[in-house]
Amino acid sequence: MIVIRSFILIVLCSILLACGEQSTENTEQKTKPYGANKVVTTVAPPDAKKIYDLNCLPCHAEGPGHAGTMRLARRLGEDKSVLTQRDDLNADYVKIVVRQGFSLMPPFRPTEISDSELNALAEYLAAK
């Protein structure tokens, strides 16, 4: 998850270097990168829209084929079915739903969306 990759490249490199010198209680072990042409993901800083796009949009986008939008349309009506078009969401409510889950939506763990990312996401949706 891009938003959770709160590493910077330097940290990644140091981790990779460290991976080359793993030791256990009994033996010195060496690991190596797989293959050649190593490509390492770089990480964008936390960004509420990116958090939303990665975690929420696949189910809450506008139009058919989106489970969350479909569910909200049934429960609250078409005019409240698309999260980013709602003006009645408050940040605390968003945070509770994300962490606890709601109806068919499973909860999201702090390893998926950290507390600071959740704050940003909640403010983003509440400000719509």
Partner: peptide
């Protein structure tokens, strides 16, 4: 979940 690197393609 936080071990989320794409190490090589």
């Amino acid at each position: 979940k936080r071990m989320n690197r794409i190490i090589e393609v």
